[in-house]
Amino acid sequence: MMTFVLTNVTLLVILIATAIAISRMRALYEATMLGALFSLVTASLFVLLDAVDVAFTEAAVGVGISTVLLLGVLALTRSREAVTPRRRHLPALIAVLLAGGALGYASQDLPAFGAADSPVFSHPITGTYLHQSQEDIGIPNTVTAVLASYRGLDTLGELVVVFTAGLAVLSLVGPPARPEETMPRADFHLADYRIIRIISGILMPFILLFALYVLFHGEYGPGGGFQAGVIFAAGFVLYGLVFGLDKAQRVVPRVALRILVSLGPLVFIGLGLATMLLGGQFLDFDVLDPNHPEEGQHLGILLVETAIGFTVAAVMTTVFFSFASRGVSR
């Protein structure tokens, strides 16, 4: 128990220190790297809280892909923040204290940490999710069951949010430049280093394989479409960084990306419409296999995870390519 508390406290202290350091930092590259550290610590905290799926997502998204994207953005802008007027420090401090005070005040009446009689534990749906799901859906990872089936609509919504973000980047930054429009490796000359080139070449298949593993293993352990999509994207980003955008685009052409971006939501919604046509409710996977509802659920969840994976990967890759080709085009 003692170690548990100590670990928690230590991590929290690191977290706060990192946050303060970021807020005082003017150099944006450094701030970005510290941001990655912040995410990593958060992910560790999630692990301690037994929320492994969340930790996995935080690690993949917060530490991995968003750091890369931020760096891509920084390549386009100045890397030092304009100095904030000093007189703004005090109001900002008051604001932080107010919001934090409000939260702290509210937390006084929250159930104790890990209390067994908290409303969340005693509510019947917790029981439904933990026990009934084995009968209804029959997959060991209840997080995936809740995510993809019980609250499938929320997941569809989140996928649409990712899709919308992709659209936003496409409309603001423009689509990735065609390979012939880019200047050959103006900034990206990592491929000159043989070690990097060879190692990343070797690593590529493993990254993709791991992504597939995470995707299909989501039913049994931590993982699923979101994490897998991010890992896919990380692979392409690495490839693009090392070998140049033009080569990366030869692997995943712009048209394919555009189709993949919209394919995920389409498959997901199409699945919902299909269940309707088969006589069930929207996203009722039971009807996919009328004789064995659990099989239907399996199939549905698999399709959903795959759709998520493809779209997340495509959106992330598009975002990176768009930013990166802003740097090298013209």
């Binding site: 649409v160 555009r258 919209s262 389409l266 919604i269």
Partner: peptide
């Protein structure tokens, strides 16, 4: 009976189609 779902599903499905 499916109207409430269709209410949202129709415009939601049209969005990715617009991009394609």
């Amino acid at each position: 009976a499916q109207l409430p779902a269709l209410q949202v599903a129709i415009p939601l499905a049209c969005a990715p189609l617009c991009v394609l």
